[in-house]
């Protein structure tokens, strides 16, 4: 049996396996993705091919399970990704929630697929740069992701210049980062603003405090329709009345559960949960 034949055989297994672990749907066109993402896992484990990896997973190797889930779920990310959602946060969403919460003096924001931390740290920078009135408020940024390795990197807050280049304004780099060898380290004040926690959106959620803003960007696209519905219902249940949901640019409103009002602002659409 040649190496290629072995890999051909392994793909359906990985489709099922990834779906079972993360509810992520890998269609047949995603074969290249499975091969390129898992090749480093195969190499690091001193295995020969995807078939070997499949057999190791079938034997219940927990370490490889984590490595495979991490490799398949760690996605593209950048600072202020797509720009306009963050402009919407600054110009509309945050001012509105700050007004609404002025008596409570508390604000909670949840970055629900935070990857290596660029999204929650971008939000922390917006708060720091544009909302000095929040000093003395109880502001919590919760950042969750499925991938332990992504969260570990996010917690460290240490980024390569390639990552720094991706959408971070130079002025923010100078203000919030310091040099650490060939890397850049985010400062402690910003780090303290974000609480990172592992969470699998496709499974039962732990108790999450009611949120003012939830960012669920570029993650629904990986799930099938029933999972998407379930996640959106969970989002609605965890959002305060009048709170906002921000989705990825490619994600449509079609499947949104009832109760949200789309609002066009800063060349993007945000969804506000109706006040009861």
């Amino acid at each position: 049996m040649t190496l290629t034949e072995r890999e051909e055989d392994a793909f359906p297994f990985f489709q099922d396996y990834i779906f079972a672990k993360s509810a992520i749907v890998l269609t047949d066109e995603k074969r290249y993705l499975v091969e390129t993402r898992l090749a480093p896992v195969v190499q690091q484990a001193n295995l020969r091919c995807l078939g070997d990896l499949m057999r190791a997973l079938m034997r219940g190797d927990r370490q490889l399970e984590t490595a495979v889930v991490d490799a398949m779920t760690t996605n593209e990310t950048s600072w202020f990704r797509d720009n306009s959602p963050f402009e919407a946060l600054r110009a509309h969403v945050l001012p509105e929630r700050i007004t609404a919460n002025s008596a409570r003096r508390a604000l909670s924001i949840w970055s629900a697929a935070c990857s290596t931390g660029q999204e929650p740290y971008s939000i922390a920078m917006i708060l720091e740069a544009h909302f000095p009135e929040l000093s003395g408020w109880n502001v919590e940024i919760l950042a969750t992701d499925l991938s332990q390795s992504a969260l570990e990197k996010a917690r460290q807050g240490r980024f390569s210049s390639l990552e720094i280049n991706r959408g971070l304004p130079a002025a923010h780099l100078l203000q919030y980062f310091s040099r650490d060898g060939a890397h850049f380290q985010i400062n402690d004040a910003l780090k303290r603003r974000v609480r990172f926690q592992q969470l699998n959106l496709a499974q039962a959620w732990p108790v999450i405090p009611p949120q003012d803003v939830i960012l669920l960007r570029n993650v629904l696209i990986y799930f099938d329709a029933p999972t998407r519905q379930r996640i959106l219902a969970g989002v609605r249940a965890n959002l305060r009345p009048g709170g906002f949901l921000l989705l990825g640019a490619a994600e449509t409103t079609r499947e949104l559960v009832e109760g949200f009002v789309p609002i066009s602002v800063a060349r993007t659409t945000v969804y506000q949960l109706k006040e009861i």
């Binding site: 390569s160 210049s161 390639l162 060898g181 060939a182 890397h183």
Partner: peptide
């Protein structure tokens, strides 16, 4: 380690 890091970024780019 520094050289390796710089080279990795260069090639990734």
């Amino acid at each position: 380690e520094t050289i390796e890091e710089i080279a990795h970024q260069l090639w990734a780019s």
